[in-house]
Amino acid sequence: MLKKEIKTCGMLWAILLPGLLVLIFFKIAPLFGLVIAFEKYSTFQGIFGSEWVGLENFRTILSDPYTWQVVKNTVLLAFWTLVVSFPIPVIFALLLNEVRFGRLKRVVQSVSFFPYFISVAVAVSILSSFVSPSDGIINRLLNGLGFDSIHFMAESGWFRPLYVFLHVWQNFGYSAIVYISAMTGIDPGLYEAASIDGANRWKKVLHITLPELVPIAVTMFIVNLGSILSVDINKVLLMQNPSTYDTSDVLQTYVYRMAFGSTGFPNYSLGTALSLLQSVIAFALVMATNWLSGKLTETNVF
């Protein structure tokens, strides 16, 4: 049996092997490290030598009322990020697909792609300059129109819109690639047939392009949902200040302060316990969405 398998599929197994090894050693094996969520972990004593504390770390997190405040902030931030950033690449890809000049299309696509490569620190710095109350272009425009300056970065109400805006600006070009690729795979015959039937461009988008994009859009949605509780901690830390704590303090920043507080001793176990909780919730969300998607659109990721 094994001999036959090697004879017939040996080449495929050989090609699969490197990826499989990476998966085992760098993705699956490290999961064992999650055990430190149930310990009072010390790097010196190691996983096997550290004191076992059971569910104490989870109790600490769940019994803290402030946890729920930061969970609310995290979910809201992630929700708005998902809701706003998910359709924009689809819309952008659809619009770009309608551009008839090939060169212009390529230029626009390349330009939209650039922000993806800008580091978060630089992106936040650019944003701060744009919205600066003293000399930012936005406030100058507002002043020109007769309005008072708004200190955008110091108003808690502006934190989420700015965070989402920055996320969209950095990622929509990159995310659109998936949809643009999917569109190239649509059978041109469908468009020709629609033209013969008298469909205009709008009708073609509505009745051909969009339905063809549904499977990939659903897949992307489910993938994005998996990271709904994973807001970008670097971005949040860079944009955060005491004026915005009530909307910007999220699970990750809270745990970061608890785990690596400058006055304390590093608490890796607490950080791991929280990450584990996050992962379990994200996993449940992905499974539920996958199931729902299968029911409603007959599209599943797995």
Partner: peptide
């Protein structure tokens, strides 16, 4: 002690943000 450090760290993680945000609300 190690215990005190851990408790204090966890409490400060919450207290300091609340403190500075609370004071700032009055100042602004």
């Amino acid at each position: 002690t190690e215990e005190q450090l851990e408790q204090r760290s966890n409490l400060l993680a919450k207290y300091e943000t609340e403190f500075y945000a609370g004071v700032l609300a009055f100042v602004k």
